[in-house]
């Protein structure tokens, strides 16, 4: 579906697609590192996903409040609200209560894994991570949902 050069500018194209067809899966990506945002959106562009991005927890929350998502990818360490806090809020109430959540973290300690699962993330991926593995995970979750 994506046409044109694969560059950082693609994010803008994805964002414009928010109001597109209803059959495409809608994904929210919250990650504070710009380069990683680019990496993830690039790797997911292969599939026809509608991707929203947020650069911090606060932004992610405001997007979650007014948009229905099939999958939410959260970075654990974000300034302001952490990924876990965003996940907890998401699960607590609102339209995305049942959305699938994938947690990314540079900290791979068991403890933090536990915290991520307590917030009922569906999947946990430790940094540095393989983007292709992430793609497999996302695909798997979305296929299960359908």
């Amino acid at each position: 579906m994506v046409s044109g050069p694969n560059s950082l500018g693609d994010i803008a194209i994805y964002q414009d697609k928010r109001c597109g067809g209803s059959t495409v899966s809608k994904i929210l990506l919250a990650e504070d590192e710009e380069i990683l945002r680019m990496l993830i959106t690039d790797v997911l562009e292969e599939e026809e996903y509608d991707i929203d991005v947020a650069e911090d927890g606060q932004k992610a929350i405001s997007l979650i409040e007014c948009n229905k998502y099939d999958l939410i990818i959260l970075d654990y360490m974000m300034p302001g609200l952490t990924g876990v806090e965003v996940a907890e809020k998401t699960r607590y109430e609102g339209i995305n209560k049942d959305a699938a959540i994938v947690m990314l973290s540079a900290k791979s300690k068991e403890l933090e894994k536990n915290i991520a699962f307590r917030s009922r993330a569906d999947y946990f991926i430790a940094k540095p991570f393989s983007p292709l593995h992430l793609l497999e995970v996302v695909k798997g979750i979305l296929e299960d949902a359908q």
Partner: peptide, 21 residues
């Protein structure tokens, strides 16, 4: 240690990710 590992993991993630792609 935990901060350093975090700081190191972010650039590592980029390097690993992009080289993989």
């Amino acid at each position: 240690v935990s901060t350093v590992s975090h700081e190191l993991r972010t650039p590592l993630s980029s390097i690993l990710g992009f080289s993989e792609l």
